[in-house]
C-alpha cells in the first residue's frame, strides 16, 4: 500500500570476503543489479507514458486556450468546461458516497463474518462484476435501473423535498445524475471491495487478538484493529474507484440525459454532463478548433484526477508514522 521502495542494494554486496564465496557473491550481485535495473526501468516507463499523455493533451489544448473566443465553436472555453467539470466531480462524489460504505461492508463481511464457503462465492461474484464491460452497465442503467428508481425518486422528492438536493420537478425518464451515480457506484464497487477485502484479510492476527483480549466485541475489534490497519489500503482502493468513476465514459453517456447546467439537484431533468461523457457524445460532430476544445476538457479531467490522487497520497503519507509499517 505504501509507496516506499525497499533499498535494493546492500545485503548482497557486503559480507565476508572469503575467496571461494567470490563466485556465488558476484552472480548474486548480477541478479540483484538486473532486478534493480528492471524495477527502475518500469518506474521510468510509467513516467514516460504519463509524460507522453500529458504532452499530447497540453499540445492539442493550447490552440483552444489561446484562440480568439469568436473562432471557438463552443464559445469561451472556461464557461464551456465548467458545467462538465462540475458534473464529473459531482457524479463521481455521489457514486463514492454510495459505493465506499457498501464496499467496506461487503469486504468486512467476506473477511470477518461470512462462513468460508459463502465468503468464497461472494468473492467470485464480486470479481465477476469487475469484468462486466461498461456498455452493459449503460444498457442496464437505461433499461432497468432508470424506470425502476423513478418511484423511489418520487418518494424522495415528496418526503425529503425540503432538502435542496431532492427538490425540483422529478425527471420523467429517471435518467438523472443520481441514476448515473448509482451505475457508477455499481461499477466501482467491485474494485474497492476486492482490494479492501485483501487488506482486511492481512490484518495481523496479533493485533486482532490484542483487541479481543482487552474485551472488545467483534465489531469493536474491527474498528480498533482491522480498519485502522487497513486505512491506507481503504484510501488507495477508494482512489482507484474514484479514478474509474471520474473517467467513466460509456455508462454515463448512455444513462444521463444531459443539460448545460451546474445544478446540485439530483432528481430533475436538468443534469450536468461529465467531461468524459461529453467528449464521447460531441467528438463525432466536432471539427477544427472544436476538437482542440474537447481535448482541452480532457486535460482538465486529467488534472482533476491527478489532484485527487495527490491529495490521497498526501493524506496517507501524513499518517505514515502510525501506519504499522515499522
Amino acid at each position: 500500500m505504501s509507496t516506499t521502495t525497499q533499498p535494493s542494494t546492500g545485503t548482497a554486496g557486503g559480507g565476508s570476503g572469503d575467496d571461494h564465496h567470490e563466485i556465488i557473491h558476484s552472480s548474486k550481485r548480477f541478479g540483484e543489479r538486473l532486478f534493480t535495473q528492471l524495477t527502475k526501468g518500469s518506474g521510468i516507463g510509467i513516467l514516460v507514458i504519463l509524460a507522453a499523455v500529458a504532452t499530447f493533451l497540453v499540445g492539442l489544448s493550447i490552440p483552444a486556450l489561446t484562440a480568439d473566443v469568436k473562432d471557438l465553436p463552443y464559445g469561451n472555453f472556461w464557461s464551456y468546461v465548467a458545467p462538465f467539470a462540475f458534473g464529473t466531480v459531482w457524479a463521481a462524489a455521489l457514486a463514492m458516497v454510495m459505493a465506499v460504505p457498501v464496499s467496506l461492508g461487503i469486504a468486512l463481511f467476506i473477511s470477518h463474518y461470512a462462513p468460508k464457503r459463502m465468503a468464497q462465492t461472494l468473492g467470485y461474484i464480486i470479481d465477476l462484476l469487475a469484468a462486466v464491460p461498461s456498455v452493459v452497465f449503460g444498457l442496464w442503467g437505461i433499461n432497468t435501473l432508470a424506470p425502476a428508481v423513478r418511484p423511489l425518486f418520487l418518494w424522495l422528492n415528496e418526503n425529503l423535498g425540503w432538502i435542496p438536493l431532492f427538490s425540483g420537478a422529478v425527471s420523467g425518464t429517471g435518467r438523472t445524475v443520481l441514476t448515473a451515480a448509482i451505475v457508477l457506484a455499481v461499477m466501482v464497487l467491485p474494485i474497492i471491495t476486492a482490494i479492501t477485502r485483501e487488506v482486511f484479510l492481512q490484518t495481523p492476527r496479533l493485533h486482532e487478538e490484542a483487541s479481543l483480549a482487552l474485551g472488545a466485541t467483534k465489531w469493536e475489534m474491527i474498528r480498533q484493529a482491522v480498519i485502522p490497519f487497513g486505512m491506507p489500503g481503504i484510501i488507495s482502493a477508494s482512489m482507484l474507484g474514484l479514478g474509474r468513476a471520474l473517467g467513466e465514459t460509456m455508462a454515463v453517456a448512455m444513462v444521463l440525459s444531459p443539460d448545460d447546467v451546474i445544478n446540485f439537484r439530483v432528481l430533475t431533468s436538468q443534469n450536468p454532463n461529465t467531461i468524459a461523457s461529453n467528449i464521447a457524445l460531441s467528438f463525432p460532430e466536432a471539427y477544427g478548433l472544436g476538437v482542440n476544445q474537447l481535448i482541452a476538457t480532457g486535460l482538465v479531467l486529467f488534472i482533476i484526477t491527478l489532484a485527487v490522487n495527490m491529495t490521497a497520497r498526501w493524506v496517507i503519507a501524513r499518517r505514515s508514522e502510525f501506519s504499522g509499517a515499522n
Binding site: L206, A210, A213, L214, A216, Q224
Partner: peptide, 27 residues
C-alpha cells in the same frame, strides 16, 4: 482476565497514550 502475548503487540496506528487507553475506550 487480561492477557499479554509472546510478541509485543501495541496497536501500530495508535500513540503510546491511546494504546494505554485502548481497552478503556471499549464498550
Amino acid at each position: 482476565v487480561g492477557m499479554v502475548f509472546q510478541k509485543p503487540n501495541p496497536f501500530p496506528t495508535m500513540s503510546i497514550k491511546e494504546n494505554v487507553l485502548a481497552g478503556v475506550r471499549l464498550n
